[in-house]
Amino acid sequence: MSANYKGMIMSETVMLGGGCFWCTESVFLPLRGVLQVTPGYAGGHVDNPSYEQVCGKQTGHIEVVRVEFDPNIIDLETLLQVFFATHDPTTVDRQGADVGPQYASAIFCQNAAQKETAQKVIDAVAQQLEEPVATRLLDAALFWPAEQYHHNFYARNPTQGYCQAVISPKLAKFRKRYASLLAA
């Protein structure tokens, strides 16, 4: 956790894998208290992997977003509730038609407090769904930013086929359910 004492902005970071990072980034960007969302890769054994390498399923990386947030405005528990409500945490290495280890549901916890909060939310989600949650609860890992063309992909390509078929409906549902969390 860090602080900017001029503006008293606190920041904390969590890395989340919830399928395609284009979708996940689009969900977290408009939340009040989220300072930055960066798509990338984590959890693998290859340094600075490319998108093509990760899609080749041999690097061990998961598509993630690194979410920097102000815990005084939005706490980790709320972020995780949004995370679980906007992807399927019950499937292993799959989100809809996106299949492969790079699409795993995962939380890379940066410290013990995050791990405790994440486990609490996972337990609540499993109870609510009445089925096991496949989300991997992992320790902090190196983060490799995705290539620049992946950053803010949906905002730059809203008419692209995947964006229209997958992301737009997901965002519409998300905005309706979490309207009170959205930045003005």
Rank of each mutant, 00 (worst) to 15 (best):
H45E: 12
H45P: 00
H45K: 14
V46Y: 10
N48Y: 11
P49F: 03
S50P: 05
Y51A: 01
E52T: 12
C55A: 13
C55S: 14
Q58F: 14
Q58H: 15
T59A: 00
T59P: 10
G60F: 04
G60I: 08
H61G: 03
I62L: 10
V65C: 08
R66F: 09
R66T: 10
V67G: 02
E68T: 13
F69W: 02
F69A: 06
F69G: 02
F69Y: 15
P71R: 05
P71T: 08
N72H: 14
N72G: 13
I73V: 15
I74A: 04
D75N: 15
L76I: 11
L76S: 03
L79C: 11
L80F: 12
L80T: 10
L80C: 09
L80R: 06
L80S: 02
V82P: 01
F83S: 03
F83Q: 00
A85I: 03
A85K: 09
A85W: 05
T86P: 01
H87Y: 08
D88K: 07
T91Y: 05
V92N: 12
V92D: 14
V92W: 15
R94G: 03
R94H: 02
G96D: 05
G96Y: 11
G96W: 11
G96V: 14
V99N: 02
G100N: 06
G100K: 03
Q102K: 10
S105E: 03
A106Q: 10
I107T: 08
C109S: 08
Q110P: 06
N111F: 06
N111Y: 07
A112M: 13
A112T: 14
A113E: 15
A113N: 14
K115N: 13
E116W: 04
T117V: 15
Q119V: 01
Q119Y: 06
K120A: 13
K120N: 14
K120W: 08
K120I: 10
V121G: 05
V121R: 01
I122T: 09
D123V: 03
D123M: 05
D123K: 10
A124I: 07
A124M: 08
